[in-house]
Amino acid sequence: MAEINLAVKKLQEKFPASIVEVKTFRDEINVTVQKGDIFEICKFLYSDPDLQYQMLTDLCGVDYFPAHPRFEVVYLLFSMKNRERLRLKAKVGEGEAILSVESVWKAANWLEREVYDLFGIHFVNHPDLRRILLWDGFKGYPLRKDYPVEGPDFDKPFVPEV
């Protein structure tokens, strides 16, 4: 891409140390950042008057097992002002935690709960980090690659522990 995206330029100026990689595939911009700075970066992208990424369209996890660090948390932002999407990614290792962006976008509340539920990634400062799709007593994190498609309990009757 000949011209550099405004958001990427601003990020490179403001957070030069935390940008790991910028990649474009099929006209979509992917910015990988250090996970420690994710909250500051999101806050900046949200509040910068030229960018205004006011909508968190999606937040999800991806498991690249057996790579290290194995997880990636993916943030898809949308700016109504510029009609532009931006994808942020942060790599997270097994058993590690990442800062919650719930105080920037309320939408992150349930989305982060879902990532926690299905991948077991912890979000620090999340106000209500509980399982959301599965029940409280559930063991394991189903969207991890080492979790079988047919679960260990698939042929047993379901009795939740209360």
Partner: peptide
Amino acid sequence: KGEVYVGVEASKGELGYYLV
């Protein structure tokens, strides 16, 4: 190898698919 996101306007709102 790569990843794409496509959002469409479903009847309930923006339905998106993110494929890796």
